[in-house]
Amino acid sequence: MHVEPPVGSPRSLEEAYGLLASAPHRPLAGGTDMLVQLTGELGPAPERVLDLWRLDELRGIRVEGGALEVGALTTHAQIRRSEACAAHAPTLVAAVATIGAAQIQNRGTIGGNVMNASPAGDTLPVLLALDAVLVAGGPRGERSIPAVGFWPAYRSTALAPDELLLRVRIPIVDGRRQAFRKVGTRRAQAISKVVLAAAWRRDPAWRDVRIAFGSVAATPIRATAAEAALEGAPPTAASIDRAVAALLAELRPIDDVRSTAAYRLEVSGRILRRLLEDAS
């Protein structure tokens, strides 16, 4: 029982912006989220679709200006195979490797994951932890939006309806270390119960600590209290205790079909503690 809404298939960004300006369209990347919605059972099916698949200018991975740039239409499979991603954003590689299985990774894109804006989106905590910047384009030109402000509410983004996500910029930072942990229900094809991504430097005190979680709130979030508990502190058991305590005080996860609030809270603390101990 699928609807088949009209679809525009632009060959250039200009053409895409023109179509977006003419009428509301829902942009389509690899389809792995949108096609599920064509039944209309999981919320309204799109009225009109803008198929971005032919916009090769939105593909590709490169290192430029001190940042790793990943085009919005880059697939999870391409990220998994990328040496540049492995070198500068191993947590991104780890995250996309947990999305679906080969079939999904061959079609699903980082732009799609970002714009789907699911609180369980696996790459989103990584982008938060790595201080990524999301570059959007539209009739008014390009603009850059920090990941930390990109998902203001449940399943929404900072983009205007006539804008498209063009690429993700991840600054390359000397000495930055990063870690990723997903807790799902099974070993493949699982939506997360808790996702943790973190980045930091050590000198040897904790510096530039970023701790981000998915699936524990209505949006992917930074655990700012836990970050603050660590920032500048020595890597001791006491600082880890303070960070975990701060985390447990700031998270407010919920019960849902996938897990319980109690489990999410307890396990968030446990995996953060483990990560920090391993990093000490």
């Binding site: 599920v36 299985a101 229900t185 099974r186 070993r187 493949a188 094809q189 699982a190 939506i191 079909v257 996938r258």
Partner: peptide, 27 residues
């Protein structure tokens, strides 16, 4: 280990393959 159906008001919440999970080859 993983197969579970939660109910609210007598309705199954795990009523899709995204939520009713069975083991994959890796499990």
């Amino acid at each position: 280990t993983i197969e579970e159906i939660k109910l609210v008001d007598g309705r199954y919440l795990n009523d899709r393959l995204q939520t009713y999970l069975i083991p994959t080859s890796l499990d």
